[in-house]
Write a protein that binds this DNA or RNA. Structure first.
Length: 284
DNA sequence: TGGCAGGGGTTGA
DNA sequence: TCAACCCCTGCC
């Protein structure tokens, strides 16, 4: 069973099951199973080594997928750790890392995510793999989903999202280079490029940029992030923010690695104990 | 057991 | 700025 020593903190559960990817399932507290680049694999941490059970995956592929090449502690230092809430979040979840998910898979997951909860998105993801992934349940390509058609996608519990996904799959099947976004393209322009796809707005474009393209300056804002920012930083504010205002404020407050701030605060907020003074947003 | 409200967003008016 | 879009879940 191949392995590599962990030189960086890694928490498999918060990283793989926390809402960046939907192709992973818990096996036991220290073991998860899922897919990396169409290879089924089980990951386990033992004695500060990461072990995996599929020798088709090289250490470099594993390192790349889990961003183990990023020096997270030094990226968090200075501006981010000056913020007391982020210090608390980073202390709580030191091994939460940004993923480098496959862009197409990530895009599909988030097109399916609107008004859905994590468990439901994971279910849709599993439905797509079993319905269209063949015997190995690999993730279906744009042309496979195009051929499947809207009605078959609806049968996978996609609801109204099926129409957008079919249209986006068609676009990418006819234009495979669409998702080859050069690193030199600034994040706002990269987001605008993704938002020309049906079913992709500002939230989803930024999720894909952060979770698949490792754009650490992408800051996705959903209702949870809006709530947590208001509760932590603007307790008197009642109405949701305008996105343009948050673009400016997060850039100024969190700086160029604000995506890491989003990742940490979001996870911390969602998993905090119910007795937290922040209260339960569902009851608001 | 069944009815109902509401959810991690986008779109078009 | 706001309703509509499917479907699943939790709650009563």
């Amino acid at each position: 069973m191949p392995s590599l020593p962990l030189l960086q903190p890694l928490d498999l559960s918060s990283t793989l099951l926390g809402g960046q990817s939907f192709s992973w399932n818990p096996v036991s507290p220290s073991v998860v199973s899922g897919w990396i680049a169409s290879h089924p694999v089980q990951l386990e941490i033992k004695k500060n080594h990461l072990h995996w059970d599929n020798s088709d995956l090289s250490p470099d592929q594993i390192r790349h997928y889990l961003s183990l090449d990023l020096d997270l502690p030094s990226l968090l230092e200075s501006q981010l750790l000056a913020d007391p809430h982020l210090r608390a979040a980073a202390r709580q979840h030191p091994g939460l890392r940004p993923l480098r998910e496959d862009p197409w898979e990530c895009l599909v997951n988030f097109i399916c995510s609107s008004l859905k909860q994590i468990t439901q998105i994971r279910q849709i993801h599993a439905n797509l793999r079993s319905a269209f992934g063949g015997p190995t349940r690999s993730f279906p390509s744009p042309s496979t989903l195009t051929q499947a058609g809207e009605q078959s996608l609806r049968n996978c519990a996609l609801g109204y999202r099926a129409r957008s996904l079919t249209a986006t799959a068609q676009r990418l099947a006819s234009q495979p280079s669409f998702l080859s976004i050069p690193d030199s393209l600034p994040t706002p322009q990269a987001a605008a490029h993704l938002e020309t796809l049906p079913g992709v707005g500002p939230k989803i474009s930024r999720c894909v940029l952060l979770y698949a393209y490792n754009r650490l300056d992408a800051f996705p804002v959903d209702v949870w992030v809006d709530r947590l920012l208001r509760q932590l930083y603007f307790p008197k504010k009642r109405k949701p923010f305008r996105l343009a205002d948050l673009e400016v404020w997060t850039q100024k407050h969190f700086g160029p690695n604000r995506g890491l701030a989003q990742l940490l605060l979001f996870h911390w907020f969602r998993t905090r104990p119910k007795t937290s003074p922040l209260g339960n947003p569902k009851r608001r």
